[in-house]
Design a protein around this nucleic acid. Structure first.
Ligand code: SF4
Ligand code: SF4
Lengths: 145, 145
DNA sequence: GTAATAAAAGACTCTTTTATCTTAAATTAA
DNA sequence: TTAATTTAAGATAAAAGAGTCTTTTATTAC
């Protein structure tokens, strides 16, 4: 798995929040966890991290929940991935060799670097706004089942 | 991490065996684990799987060890990856959604499929023979440090 | 045949990730 | 100001992945 489960949940949740974000009200984590079929408390932790990283803002109490901290057009899926799994996704060696770099690269290196960059490009190219719009247009559900 | 640790160890070990395979004698797992700095018993388990999958052949007793079961030119890195981590590396959804396929794909799908195929192509293109030759020519060490 | 060697097999431990449960703090509405 | 709601925080548990240890089995060399 390229991304951790926490990270994929974070991406799904971000898209869900983006999709709801026309209603100016906060998005309930409980509703979200029900809709997406993700454990409430686990999701809460992930969203806390996204909040700490400045991608979401949260609000306690009745009518509380989370919202995008910035316009959905300005947040890419890459932003969410980096907030949760960090840079390592895009810097790691495919053979897990530590400290092995581009100087004297092994036969896999060049190809691997293009794969990694293509993956990063994929996440960079998609904003939450564009992606959630597409998802809505296609009538796709984000749920885990 | 795209590949499990067991899988990266398996690839490194296969390349090591391929490199030694001019000497017709069996390659000692103990020597290999020392050279590659991989836990002996853990490596043994991985090699057992490669043996069961028909990639290696093994021999017990003094002068025992493992050998490639087929010519190094006929074994790709993909073969090793599939033997250990299986097809899922190349079939999984990047968002971890189960049973979600190409019919009504999400906005990430097409790009993701090309990334996955490129990764698979990378492993397919490299035989153990060619890769270990390149590694020898470059004077690279496979060790984990 | 015996002793030494080396892989096979399986039990066991440690670590990380994933998931759950409990309590605390903040906010709202009555 | 009180009760209800909802996120924050942190402890705990379960599962998976990684690594270790012990015993068994097969083979070689003497
Ligand atoms: S040169 Fe090879 S082993 Fe080193 S980081 Fe690149 S892909 Fe990994
Ligand atoms: S359509 Fe999207 S969610 Fe479904 S398998 Fe493809 S990448 Fe994953």
């Amino acid at each position: 798995m390229v991304l951790s489960k926490a990270c994929t949940y974070g991406v799904l949740a971000s898209l869900y929040v983006a999709k709801q974000s026309e209603n100016k009200s906060y998005v309930s984590i409980r509703d979200m966890s029900d809709e997406l079929n993700i454990s409430f408390h686990f999701l809460t932790k992930i969203l806390q991290k996204l909040t700490a990283e400045g991608i979401l803002q949260s609000h306690k109490g009745p009518k509380g929940g989370v919202l995008l901290a910035r316009p959905a057009q300005s947040i890419t899926i890459l932003d969410v991935v980096l907030a949760i799994d960090g840079e390592k996704v895009f810097t790691e060696c495919v053979l897990g060799l530590p400290g092995c770099g581009a100087q004297r690269p092994c036969p896999l290196h060049n190809h691997w670097v293009t794969v990694r960059e293509d993956l990063k490009e994929m996440f960079t190219a998609k904003t939450l706004a564009a992606t959630s719009d597409d998802i809505r247009e296609l009538g796709l559900r984000l749920s885990l089942d």
